[in-house]
Design a protein around this nucleic acid. Structure first.
Lengths: 350, 350
DNA sequence: TTGAAAGCGCTACCAT
DNA sequence: ATGGTAGCGCTTTCAA
């Protein structure tokens, strides 16, 4: 708990001035400081285990090389953490550090959290949410370069760039996968409309049918919620006591938890997956989709890529502040990725 | 992106000196500054939307009221986020803010992350992990008051206070619950020994039997891993093709995911839960245990409480630095909490 | 009651 | 090539 060495300590030890230390340690020694002084300085710094005080640096330079990440509940919830992971990856690789604050879904805390971050001189801000959603962009975010990840400005005239998954294409390709295996009666457990992702995925489902020249039967689309029990009860309604010819041959779910519920229902009804029924998930939730029995075929959300893309956009804006107006597009859509595992198979012959 | 107002701006606007502003805004105005100056200052501050520059404050005061939280993978993984939530709760209520850095399980990054935090003048440090585990305490943590949450110093002579769940009691009470419902043949899917939590929970299981005057049959304890498939296959081994009289009447799992696998197996075998088989989980994982069908009886990990306790310990040490040596105990054990839902019931009569 | 000045650790610009 | 100095925004002491 003893005080850290300062540049002055290093200077004393090396028998030079503070300025010399600063120059050398910042690589501007050559041509300014004698070679041998340089060595002594570096040596002294090493011995004292010197590293510059970032606070003083920030105050002096008016920039901190810190990016503040504001999370609605990414930290405390089990979801979407990899967005932050991806963002941090690129931040670190470019010499920035990220600090995260989580408001636990209390938007009233947004402003104060941002104020806190801003007061600490963050060079940029990123807002990240669990699940795609429109947000009210907190005023403070406009004071520094900022970006939105997995969410977007609810206003008609958006100020900030956002990075979101391409849900329509995701829904379409998930459906395509089933279509290609010969399924035509595909039920859709579609989440609930409190999330904008749900209707988008439904849209993709419809598009896939349309492209295939088939009619998506609207009666097969059920807004079911997002959890295991919803999947279970939804599947039961679709399958229990229904004659095989009237059953859907595949159930597509708006997330993996629904798929777990469906699998549970299928097991209870003595239906084998995938020979009697194909089940398709969405999200590729870690340690759910990959460890289910059978392992879930699913549409992976590109979380890490989204985080990377968002941070890249932000840092580009930050570092290229000179060559102005380079930024034109306000939206990045990252494609989802089909992960084929064991819960889907060819349509049963009957 | 225009510069924020400084204390000098406020002073000018109010027609006073910087010191006056400082005094008033820090509540030391009375007796030092004229009442009406005070009003003008407060007014000006308001109008300019002034808030002090935290960087300058930290530099000046040598403390930042920031607590750094270092996470091994709490942020990016789906688990244990509420530890951070709880920690943040108490930090905020005591006027501190927390910033989180996640190393994504790369312990090589520990030291540099801590250095970063330290360079930014954090007043204290908290190390938090996913799952109970021993850690190598990074040197830097000893330079400021620090605490360990959900992990503990691997060394024989621990320096830091740690907060962990009481796994033995948790295992015991979970088993007790089953015992009390008349089960005596209770299988245990015990996770794997790469986690210190597993043997502790097993210990609790044995203790419960011992206390009840029963023999825990060691043959019923299976180190099975932690995921759904492990639960599924473990249960299949226990149940499939086994005559009802040789089947365990209850399966206790070392986490909820195992329990999901067990439920899946039971469903496939036509076994009803809980009338044919009771299933007990562990962790009370959000949106898993509570939404399973049937909803899982489980032993809840006191995540939020652990976070709260850890932060309380840390801030007490920080703020009570004067009255020294108050801290004697190095360990806080937080009790787990039995949550009875629908997956457990009386032993079947046969 | 008020204002001037020092100093937290650092870098950049001056003189020397 | 080197060292002195100003100043980032703030609080605190001291003089007026």
């Amino acid at each position: 708990m003893n005080r850290k060495a300062t540049a002055l300590d290093v200077a004393k030890r090396a028998g030079v001035s503070r300025s010399a230390v600063s120059l050398v340690l910042n690589g501007r020694g050559d041509g300014n400081v004698a070679k041998e002084s340089q060595d002594r300085i570096r040596q002294a710094a090493q011995e004292l285990n010197y590293s510059p005080n970032a606070i003083a640096l920030s105050l002096r330079n008016q920039r901190s090389r810190v990016i503040g990440i504001l999370s609605d509940e990414v930290v405390v919830s089990p979801f979407d953490g990899n967005i932050i992971g991806g963002a941090d990856d690129v931040a670190r690789s470019r010499g920035f550090v990220t600090v995260v604050m989580d408001t636990e879904r209390d938007t009233a805390r947004d402003a104060s959290a941002i104020e806190t971050l801003l007061d600490r001189q963050v060079d940029g801000l990123m807002y990240v949410t669990v699940g795609l959603k429109p947000i009210e962009v907190p005023q403070g975010m406009l004071r520094v370069p900022s970006v939105l990840a997995n969410c977007y400005d609810a206003h008609p005239e958006p100020q900030l760039h956002h990075v979101i998954p391409d849900e329509v294409t995701g829904g379409r390709e998930a459906t395509d996968h089933l279509l290609q295996m010969g399924h035509t009666d595909i039920a859709l457990l579609a989440g609930s409309s409190d999330s904008p992702a749900a209707p988008l995925r439904v849209q993709g489902y419809r598009d896939a049918f349309a492209t295939a020249g088939l009619n998506a039967s609207e009666g097969r689309i059920h807004m079911a919620g997002w959890d295991i029990d919803a999947g279970y009860h939804g599947a039961m309604k679709l399958l229990d006591g229904v004659s095989p010819s009237d059953r859907p041959t595949a159930i597509m779910c708006a997330n993996d938890r629904l798929a777990v519920g469906v699998a549970l229902a299928a097991a209870r009804l003595g239906l084998n997956v995938p020979t009697d029924l194909s089940i398709m998930g969405y999200d590729d939730e870690t340690r759910i989709a990959d460890t289910m029995v059978p392992a879930l075929t699913t549409m992976a959300l590109p979380l890490r890529e989204m985080g990377r893309a968002a941070m890249t956009t932000l840092l580009d804006a930050l570092e290229g502040a000179d060559r102005a107006g380079a930024e034109t597009t306000k939206e990045t859509m990252v494609p989802c990725r089909l992960v084929v595992r064991e819960s889907t198979g060819p349509v049963p012959t009957r």
